[in-house]
């Protein structure tokens, strides 16, 4: 049943798959970021309560969703890498981690910039902001553990173990923080999402979520390609790829000289 997946365990096939998928993801990302931002900033109606400040939702919510989505996909990749010993899954973990960290950082910054006009403070120890902050720590842990190893083979496996441990801990951390928050803060904070969201705001939000997802996909594919190349640098196909690349560049230089 899963046999069709087997060829992708080979680095070269996976690299080629990245190359085929990349343009689609990139086009969707660019188009939906432009549509989503213009729609969200210029055309969506203002909220009756929060006026125009609510427009931050169009980047805050997508980045928060993607920060957690990226962590779960990283954990799944880590699980696959450890159980089936697939090198490509290990490389995917390394490719996802910085992108997920960037998403978390965006969610934190936009959360703070939204909190200032709404709550009157840049930082409030709100359950969701606090969980995002801890999520950022977990991402940074995976990244710095990978960078600390000299031997990238053990580095990959060590980061996979850490990503899995973090994934098991993450729900516990999330619920404990939520529980701690209700215990200490009570109902001083007004919740944003009370009730259903109107269609005129819902659709631009969906477009933005799609945009962020496609963006994450694009950048992860790019990073995965780099990791595959670095790890496989002694293989003949990489050598072939590079000689092709240099030939192309030389040709380009030659064309320019001719002009």
């Amino acid at each position: 049943m899963w046999k069709w997946l087997h060829p992708y365990a080979k680095a070269q096939t996976a690299y080629r798959l990245c190359n085929t998928l990349l343009p689609y993801f990139a086009v969707v990302a660019v188009a939906s970021i432009i549509i989503g931002w213009v729609w969200g900033l210029g055309f969506a109606p203002a909220d009756y309560q929060q006026k125009d400040s609510y427009r931050i939702i169009f980047i805050h919510v997508p980045s928060a969703i993607l920060s957690m989505g990226a962590y779960s996909s990283m954990a799944i990749a880590a699980f696959i890498a450890l159980v089936w010993q697939l090198r490509n899954a290990e490389l995917a973990v390394i490719a996802i981690a910085p992108v997920g960290a960037a998403m978390t950082l965006i969610a934190l910054i936009t959360g703070a910039a939204w909190g200032k006009p709404m709550w009157g403070a840049w930082w409030v120890w709100d359950a969701r902001l606090t969980s995002e902050l801890i999520l950022l720590f977990l991402y940074l842990g995976v990244i710095s553990l990978y960078n600390a190893f000299e031997d990238k083979g053990s580095a990959g496996r060590a980061s996979c173990i850490l990503a899995l441990v973090g994934a098991i801990n993450l729900p516990i951390i999330h619920f404990s923080v939520e529980w701690w928050n209700t215990l200490h803060q009570g109902a001083t904070i007004t919740k944003f999402d009370g009730g259903a969201i109107d269609a005129s705001m819902f659709w631009p939000l969906m477009v933005n979520i799609l945009a962020f997802a496609a963006f994450v996909g694009t950048v992860v594919l790019m990073r995965l390609k780099n990791e595959i190349l670095l790890r496989e640098k002694h293989r003949p196909w990489v050598k072939g790829l590079i000689t092709n690349q240099t030939q192309l560049e030389n040709q380009n230089v030659g064309d320019k000289n001719a002009v």
Partner: peptide, 10 residues
């Protein structure tokens, strides 16, 4: 400590 302290939060 960077790896372990976040896991200590609960």
């Amino acid at each position: 400590s960077l790896l372990v302290l976040p896991l200590y939060i609960p």
